[in-house]
Design a protein around this nucleic acid. Structure first.
Length: 623
RNA sequence: GCCGGUGUAGCUCAGGGGUAGAGCAACUGAUUCGUAAUCAGUAGGUCAGCGGUUCAAUUCCGCUCACCGGCUCCA
């Protein structure tokens, strides 16, 4: 797929705001560890150096594992006292000392028994456990004379090849031994390391850039949404500006779905608990559900998913094969119990709206239906400038239900659809749900992060549990195939991702306030009001800045609120029936006739454009 | 849920056992102004909540809640 023009334009044009430079022409390359053999060695060695420094400072610390990450490394320790941020400074000093000694790192191949002896001599129980899982040959790396670690390598030759000015210890965190929350709690220290100080500086700049884009910050600054303590964690309040954007997203979504052959449903938020018993959620999903509530001696359950409702809707009447495929979508709000401490802005909440849909079809329709879904997914995601995807196809796990033939047919249908779409994908062998294979899709944002949103899952389970049927051509009763799919995943989460993708600089069509009129003096207020009225009538979201501040301040405020188009109105504009436009993404658009702006804005809204299509008008003062 | 950190005005933050501070935002007034901050004034806080220590707690201690960075889990 081609380059994203809007995206690149935006990256180049964002001005410097509050001293924070945004994505700049980054001359400094930051390869990932997996892309650079040299960085891999550096980071691998750094984690050894860190572990050695830690054990020098904290002799009671036991070592566990210390791998590289894509931007650095970490090491997990078992230490009686957790490390504090202050300890990091001391550890860093210790590391610099080790680096300056130019200690050699040497690979030593040892027998299993020798390794065991050496580990026991140092009383490192975790290392012993690691050793048990290792295949021959067993190698360890020495770091100078005093320190060594079980390791496959590779490493730099000596610590003098590590740049003491190009690493940083970033944070301490709790982690579990072997990632298992029932096992010992360890202390993890994260670090980053590079070849040059420039790279380190660039890495830090990118962290700042991610902070600048943080949807929680932008949501607050632009007054889009909030999460209120009094209401509870993970429950989202959409403020007028955010709600307006959500409405625009939903309108687009509905229109795309109707065009794509879907019908829309509305279903209840609660249902009798017996429904959840039939669906299996009570047995397999209850720890993620809000507790039941009793009404009239009947127990009701708040919905964590929409599918049982769509299934009931299907089952409400006898279906013929001629009706299939049935495609039903719903913006369905669900509630899930999330453990305290896992909530995160809009990305992880307890109440959220899924753009859920279910397709009931014949086995031979699977491939076509999946392809349609892929097409719709691309259409919808690319409208928000997400055009790079990473696709995973997950196949049958060991524990699963359904006949071999059905699994085979279904998996073939998914593969066929992906091939027809021409999308490359990875296969996650055995990674499917117990009830069917699935396709997951991740999108890449403007700063290269991947986010899982869309998912397409085949389900042989629910139709079985609810005994769904259709009447086949021969008059027999057959079971339909059910496809679950979501494109945004959750509106909240998608909104958060999209906000970070645009860094709050939303495209024109999506901005909650599209045009702000800036009256230079009070004298032009009535002219401004007239313009506001006609723009609003045309469906353009437009306000007048009534603050009475001077123009410089009005512009500053408008830019800080990331309004796409600021329209300066002074005596000259009133006289000419024009506005002087300043576009956030396009710069100065000059003096433009009111009607020209109106037409351009309407067109941008209809086409969902990021910017206005306006011929450059006469520059100010030229007449 | 677990480990660590944080919680002072709408926002960003200072302060500290003896009645609470700044800048920005808000409001009021003056200014009527041309492309990123006009000036002056006013108002705004149970210092997250609950309990304890103390003559006195926003400050010290404990618990709870929320948030932040991770772990685990996940849309």
């Amino acid at each position: 797929m081609g380059d994203d023009d809007i995206g690149t334009l935006r990256l180049r044009r964002i001005p410097i705001l509050n001293g924070f430079e945004s994505v700049s022409s980054a001359a400094v390359e930051l390869p990932k560890t997996s892309e650079s053999p040299q960085l891999l060695k550096i980071r691998h060695s750094m984690s050894h150096v860190m572990a050695m420094a830690v054990q020098q400072l904290f002799p009671s610390a036991r070592v566990t594992i210390g791998p590289w990450t894509e931007t650095g490394f970490y090491y997990d320790f078992d230490n009686p006292d957790p490390f504090t941020e202050a300890d990091l400074k001391a550890i860093k000093k210790g590391m610099i000392k080790i680096i300056n000694k130019k200690l050699p790192l040497e690979r030593v191949e040892v027998s299993r028994s020798e390794a065991e002896e050496r580990i026991k001599a140092q009383n490192e129980p975790y290392k012993l456990e690691i050793l048990e899982g290792l295949q021959e040959p067993i190698t360890l790396y020495t770091l100078g004379k005093e320190w060594w670690d079980l390791c496959a390598g590779p490493h730099v030759e000596h610590t003098g090849q590590l740049n003491p000015k190009a690493f940083e210890l970033e944070s301490v965190a709790g982690a579990y031994w072997r990632g298992d929350e029932t096992k010992a709690q360890l202390q993890r220290i994260y670090g980053t390391a590079w070849e040059s100080a420039d790279q380190l500086a660039e890495h830090k700049r990118r962290i700042e850039e991610a902070k600048r884009r943080d949807h929680r910050r932008i949501g607050n600054d632009l007054d889009l949404f909030s999460i209120e303590d009094e209401a509870g964690a993970g429950l989202v309040f959409w403020h007028p500006r955010g709600a307006r954007m959500r409405l625009l997203i939903e309108e687009f979504w509905r229109q795309a779905h109707f065009a794509g052959g879907y019908e829309l449903l509305y279903t209840p938020h609660v249902a009798d608990i017996s429904l959840w018993k039939t669906s299996g959620h009570l047995d397999f999903y209850s720890e993620s559900m809000f507790g039941p509530m009793e009404v009239d001696e009947r127990e009701y359950q708040l919905k964590p998913m929409n599918c049982p409702f769509h299934v009931l809707t299907y089952a409400s009447t006898l279906r013929s094969y001629r009706e299939l495929p049935i495609r039903w979508a719903e913006l369905g709000t669900v509630y899930r119990y999330e453990r305290p401490g896992v909530m995160h802005g809009l990305m992880r909440v307890r109440g959220f709206t899924q753009d859920d849909a279910h397709v009931f079809c014949l086995p031979e329709q699977i491939s076509d239906e999946i392809l349609r879904i892929l097409d719709l997914t691309e259409e919808i995601l690319s409208t928000f400038d997400f055009t790079n995807y990473e696709i995973n196809l997950s196949t049958r796990p060991e524990k699963s239900i359904g006949e071999d033939a059905v699994w085979e047919l279904a998996t073939k249908g998914l593969v066929e659809a992906l091939e027809r779409k021409g999308w490359s994908y990875k296969i996650d062998e055995g990674g499917g749900a117990f009830y069917g294979p699935k396709i997951d899709l991740k999108i890449e944002d403007a700063i290269g992060r991947m986010w899982q949103c869309s998912t397409i899952q085949l389900d042989f389970n629910l139709p079985e549990r609810f005994k769904l049927e259709y009447v086949a051509a021969d008059g027999s009763r057959q079971r339909p195939i059910m496809i679950h799919r979501a494109i945004f995943g959750s509106l909240e989460r998608f909104f958060g991702i999209m906000t970070e993708n645009y860094a709050g600089d939303f495209p024109f069509w999506l901005a909650p306030e599209q045009i702000r009129l800036l009256p230079v003096t009070d004298e032009v207020m009535s002219y401004a009001e007239k313009i506001q009225q006609s723009l609003r009538k045309a469906g353009v979201r437009c306000n007048i800045d009534q603050s009475g501040d001077r123009l410089g301040k009005l512009i500053r405020t408008g830019e800080q609120k990331k309004i796409p188009v600021l329209a300066v109105i002074g005596a000259q504009e009133a006289e000419h029936s024009t506005l002087s436009l300043r576009s956030r993404l396009q710069g100065d658009l000059g003096e433009v006739a009111v009607d020209a702006l109106l037409q351009a804005a309407k067109k941008a809204n209809e086409q969902r454009d990021a910017t206005l299509d306006l011929p450059m008008a006469t520059p100010i003062g030229a007449s």
